[in-house]
Design a protein around this nucleic acid. Structure first.
Length: 955
RNA sequence: GCGGGAGUCGCCCAGCCUGGUCAAAGGCGUAGGGCUUAGGACCCUAUCUCUUAGGAGUUCGUGGGUUCAAAUCCCACCUCCCGCACCA
């Protein structure tokens, strides 16, 4: 059968739409509010994006069938800078990006033409992504859709950020950013050539020495080494500048002067001085010590200030440079000796000397010095301890002492921050080389605040995090989170209400917006305009602050409207489940928690977070450059939405990276098609006169329902889907074997019943094809509106499960014997236990062992203690073997056996084994009881029979 | 460095949370058989070692420990992967 997936999917999508099935308003039913992080529309969505949304949609559809009033909304995140960069590149006619748009994303030419305007890019991909979501069959309430730059949303964000500020969560301070001196703008990854993220090293500092009346600053990553300083280095070939910095006179390289000018300082070059002139002078240390300035050619004017301090005991370069001078007979240098300040296991008193000698460094231009420096730096950082030269820091480990010395120097005015670009040179798209700029008026969310963190931890403790093992990661993130810039100077978004130069940063305007879904419906249908959305309005609706009359008077809305919005919010909030990719744990998801606890009362804090891994394509990471991105919509066109949904879900458990490949899609496709075919042939019929295998398969169906439901509740979708699609199959094939052996033709009704449950459970995963199957099964209502199959324990027939188990095991045993003995059976005889004592002991043992007890001694003791089973004493061999039998059986089966006490092995095997035996082994199978009078037992096997373990004779 | 995750029978991968159902699911590969003129697709069977009666032995990165019982819990070690920010 070849199925036209597109047609089937269209058919059912339009029915859902007609019936407004996914438009959710408050009602009397319990609710679930399920949300996913909205997309940033700068490209079409691919399979990878599809994963999070599909998981959430399955979740939503599942709860809908479970009887909840489920709200699943969607918005679009326009906030941010990427489309700005794209527009620039498109305007500049960059081939790379245009090729990508044309060949990978297949954007029509006339659309590309409009892309010089950033919003047009977002608009285009917004529609593209939305169409994809609809085609995937996501059960979204589109009436609530918005973008983050519409006026209503902006009102909401203004309220949010104002509320945070009022609550003291926002502070101002200085912050270094990557900066383009030509564009006068901060640069991010999207603004640079080669898409490199400018990395800023904020742990770099300069230490101020005095040289006469001037400040003589040197930069270092190792402030603790000031105690081991012997001299300073300047490059004799460099002309240094005299610079006035905030009124102080500094001597630095020209390159350094330029850098400092971006640090929000007043910088003016007042003169110059050749390096050679400084050599031989002395500068004063933080403690007033006189330090000699010496020449060294390794000093690069472009690094730091162009001046270097010398710590020959611990810095290989310094050691070597000093040695070189001494070798040349430099008079002043010859008096200097290294001052060790760190002791490190494995090294003697002057580690730099040791490592230079060990590596055979020839002079200060030797390349080996880099390696030596690296090795020693790391070793001293991790293992080193400061010694008594370091005053009050004596005995500190380097990694902790360094921090303390840094603060100490800073407090005494000897130290200033000197952030540098770690991965320099970084070039802006305009061609200019980027610098570090310190912004003094940056706004921060003070995530470092302990009281705030406490609230967040509180929330996490009570939240359901799926999968649970990622909870520790959240705890860690909350721990190390600190101030975070919440405003930017460029990009789309909402202006800071109190400082219009700034735009609320994109990760800060996307943290509590789920609340806005409950309002956007009213904005979208025109009953509310953005102007109505005043601070008092939001306060009343969202925080229950103030009263309705205040909200009415400022918003100019009627009390009725306000109350229905409030009812809507109160009904749907809090968020019951938030879905997102694992890459957002460190930022969005954590901020989501932090902002909720900062703004809302405890009863409105989020209930659950579901985190999923990413999607790989044929085992490789998806990337534009690899060209292995498959846009979701073209995949749907080719394979159908449902096969893709299933392929994404079935390939990995939640947190794992899912490997997507086309083979699995087509495998699933044919699986679904054959299921559809079998549904078409089944009829709903009255079932009477159930046979053993019928009660068995119906019982099995019940336990499957229970397992699948539980898996879904814990979002173990892969497992659930696997059970629906495949595990069912193995039971069904046993059933087919059994009915086939009997030549039965009356099983359509039973299969109809089983497949109805299966299709219903499949429907959240593969909604379109499940509707089709449901229809073929003869239903007139839609499956998406049907009730989730309910597990009814009373429909589980323990005896039939034990019976089939016995049958399977017996057949297995027979095959096993045949295999080992290699005999061709002419006659097979089965002897069933009929000894009352053995049966009694067996059931007693079951009750003992059901809790997990399987110690021979304990079991025996209990058996003997009971007069009914005291006979066990005389048959330790039987007890031993039975323990083994039961030991290898599942807890479930043991319980079932206990329940099915009156099960008659002989009668069952007699009636069921013959058909199966004929089919499997081609011979007749005779069944006797151990104590039958007419027994045929030439080899005396019968006495070995145990309950549920008949003895076997093969001739 | 800080943090997170992983190491399973030729390969991929499930099981580990909640110890006993585990010689360990499933898929691929390989071997044999069926179907076919043949091949492909498909179906069946086998696939740690030994075993002429349903059995036994040795396995889940390495080494210890807890337990009547460990792939599963605890400790140490080795190896590999990912994130470290103002970017959506």
């Amino acid at each position: 059968m070849t199925l036209n997936w597109t047609d089937v999917e269209k058919k059912w999508r339009s029915k859902w739409e007609e019936n407004k099935d996914f438009e959710t308003n408050p009602n009397d039913k319990p609710k679930k509010f399920i949300t996913v992080a909205y997309p940033y529309p700068n490209s079409p969505q691919h399979i990878g994006h599809g994963r999070t949304y599909t998981l959430a949609d399955v979740h939503a559809r599942f709860y809908r069938m479970k009887g909840f009033n489920v709200l699943f909304p969607m918005g679009f995140h326009y906030t941010g800078t990427p489309v700005l960069g794209m527009a620039k590149r498109i305007e500049a006619g960059e081939k790379e990006i245009l090729d990508g748009l044309r060949n990978i994303y297949h954007v029509p030419e006339d659309a590309i033409k409009t892309f010089v305007e950033p919003i047009k890019i977002a608009d285009y991909f917004h529609e593209e992504i939305k169409s994809g979501m609809i085609e995937m069959g996501y059960s979204i309430d589109w009436r609530r859709e918005f973008t983050t730059i519409v006026p209503g949303y902006q009102k909401f964000i203004e309220w949010q950020i104002t509320t945070l500020k009022e609550k003291g969560r926002i502070i101002q301070g200085s912050h270094p950013v990557g900066w383009c001196p030509v564009d006068q703008n901060p640069v991010s990854q999207h603004d640079t050539m080669g898409d490199v993220e400018p990395k800023i090293d904020d742990k770099n500092f300069l230490i101020k020495f005095k040289l006469g009346d001037s400040i003589f600053p040197i930069t270092t990553l190792r402030p603790e080494t000031i105690f081991g300083i012997t001299n300073l280095w300047v490059n004799p070939n460099t002309i240094y500048k005299k610079v006035s910095v905030d009124g102080e006179e500094w001597i630095v390289s020209e390159e350094c002067a330029k850098k400092i000018s971006f640090f929000e300082k007043k910088v003016e070059i007042t003169g110059e001085i050749p390096g050679s002139e400084i050599i031989g002078k002395t500068a004063t240390n933080h403690d007033g010590r006189e330090i000699l300035v010496l020449p060294a050619e390794f000093v690069e004017p472009s690094m730091g200030t162009g001046l270097v301090m010398s710590v020959p005991a611990h810095a290989p370069k310094d050691y070597q440079a000093l040695r070189d001078l001494k070798a040349k007979g430099h008079e002043l240098a010859s008096k200097l000796e290294p001052i060790p300040i760190i002791t490190t296991e494995g090294y003697g008193s002057i580690p730099a000397k040791e490592i230079c000698e060990k590596m055979g460094v020839s002079d200060q231009s030797d390349d080996k010095l880099e390696e030596a420096t690296k090795e020693l730096y790391l070793k001293e950082f991790t293992d080193g301890k400061l010694n008594d030269k370091c005053l009050q820091f004596d005995g500190e480990k380097v990694q902790f002492g360094r921090e303390k010395i840094r603060t100490w120097l800073q407090e005494n005015g000897h130290l200033e921050k000197f952030p540098v670009l770690e991965n320099a040179p970084v070039r802006c798209r305009c061609g200019a080389e980027c610098v570090v700029k310190v912004l003094n008026n940056q706004w921060f969310l003070n995530y470092g605040d302990e009281e705030w963190k406490g609230l967040a931890r509180n929330c996490l403790d009570e939240m359901n995090i799926l999968p649970n093992n990622i909870k520790t990661e959240f705890v860690e993130v909350i721990d190390w989170l600190h101030e975070r810039a919440c405003a930017r100077q460029q990009g789309l978004g909402t202006k800071l209400p109190w400082d219009k130069d700034w735009i609320v940063e994109s990760l800060s305007d996307s943290v509590i917006y789920m609340a806005y879904y409950t309002i956007s419906r009213f904005v979208n249908d025109g009953s509310v305009t953005p102007e109505n959305l005043t601070k008092e309005f939001f306060d009343y609706i969202l925080l229950d602050k103030g009263d309705v009359s205040l909200a009415v008077s400022t918003s100019k809305l009627s009390e009725d409207v306000i109350n229905s919005i409030k009812k809507e919010f109160t009904y749907f909030y809090p968020v019951d489940s938030r879905h997102s990719g694992r890459d957002l744990v460190q930022n969005h998801l954590s901020f989501f928690v932090l902002n909720h606890v900062a703004i809302f009362e405890k009863n409105l804090w989020p209930q659950e977070i579901v985190v999923n891994g990413s999607v790989m394509m044929d085992g490789a990471k998806m990337s534009k450059s690899m060209g292995n991105i498959i846009p979701l919509r073209s995949a749907i066109k080719e394979h159908g939405a449902d096969p893709i949904r299933l392929a994404i879900i079935s390939s990995a458990e939640l947190l794992q990276d899912a490997d997507f490949n086309m083979e699995s899609v087509s495998g699933i496709q044919s699986k679904l098609e054959s299921l559809l075919e079998s549904c078409s042939s089944l009829k709903k019929t009255e079932m009477s006169n159930l046979k053993a295998e019928d009660t068995w398969i119906l019982s099995k169906t019940q336990s499957k329902i229970s397992e699948i439901t539980e898996a879904l509740e814990k979002m173990r979708l892969r497992e659930a889907l696997h059970d629906i699609l495949f595990t069912f199959e193995s039971d069904l094939s046993w059933y087919a074997k059994r009915t086939g052996a009997k030549g039965r033709h009356d099983i359509s009704g039973i299969l109809h019943q089983i497949n109805s449950a299966r299709v219903a459970m499949l429907s959240p995963f593969a909604p379109h094809i499940a509707e089709e199957m449901w229809e073929k099964l003869g239903n007139t209502e839609m499956v998406s509106k049907s009730k989730w199959p309910e597990y009814s324990p009373d429909k589980v027939d323990a005896a039939s499960i034990c019976a089939e188990e016995l049958l399977k095991n017996t057949i297995d045993d027979i095959s096993n014997i045949i295999k080992v003995t290699k005999i061709t059976p002419k006659k097979i005889v089965i002897y069933v236990n009929s000894d009352e004592t053995k049966s009694k002991i067996y059931s007693k043992m079951l009750s003992i062992m059901v809790g997990g007890q399987n110690n021979m001694g304990v079991v025996m003791k209990e058996l003997i203690a009971d007069p009914n089973t005291a006979g066990a004493k005389k048959m330790p061999d039987f007890v031993q073997k039975t323990i083994k039998d039961l030991h290898s059986e599942s807890e479930d089966i043991k319980k079932m056996k206990l329940e099915a006490e009156n099960f008659d092995e002989k009668e069952f095997l007699k009636s069921e084994l013959s058909s199966m035996g004929q089919k499997e082994f081609g011979v007749e199978i005779k069944v006797y009881s151990e104590n039958d009078v007419d027994i045929y037992d030439p080899k005396g096997k019968a006495r070995h029979a145990r309950p549920f373990k008949p003895a076997i004779l093969i001739e």
